[in-house]
Amino acid sequence: MKYLALIWLLLSQAVLADAAQNVVIDKPFARAAMQQQKNSAAFMQIINQGQPAAIVNARSSVSEIVELHTHINDNGVMRMRKIPQIDLPHGQMVKLKPGGLHVMFIKLKRDLNVGDMIDVTLVFDDGSEKALELPVHKVMMKHKGMSGHGKKMMHH
């Protein structure tokens, strides 16, 4: 009986918990922006341990507007587009990363300097919210061995 009560308690917790409680955020960071740069972006890894959910909005004090965006690499042409939401399927890791999904800061009110901590609040489709503090990083590609060398031009 004791166990049943415990199981019931755990189950009800999982069902009653909102998206903000079920979502685990890993390695969040924002991209440094200064010297006339008006826009920037935040990235993170998200695991949703609960029911399928979605991020539908985001806020931050650093910019006038925050939107959800993605990039499409169309044969080397980068096409950035606004998206209505970022889906978070149960149990999967969704990566917001350079060159892909990102939380976009438009019309920055201040410089984002390396080492700063900034605020971002994620808003989920069930109305719940998650407030984050993220560090500002300078973003560049990681060392990837010998991959991705420049292509030599053909001269005749």
Binding site: G76, V77, M78, M140, M141, S147, K151, H155
Partner: peptide, 27 residues
């Protein structure tokens, strides 16, 4: 929308390398 490529031009002004997006600094 734009092509994301770094073009490397030699000392004589001749285009020599076409570096695709996401190429790490060491390359």
């Amino acid at each position: 929308d734009h092509t994301s490529v770094i073009y490397l031009v030699d000392r004589r002004g001749v285009l020599q390398y076409y570096v695709p997006h996401d190429t790490p600094p060491n390359s």
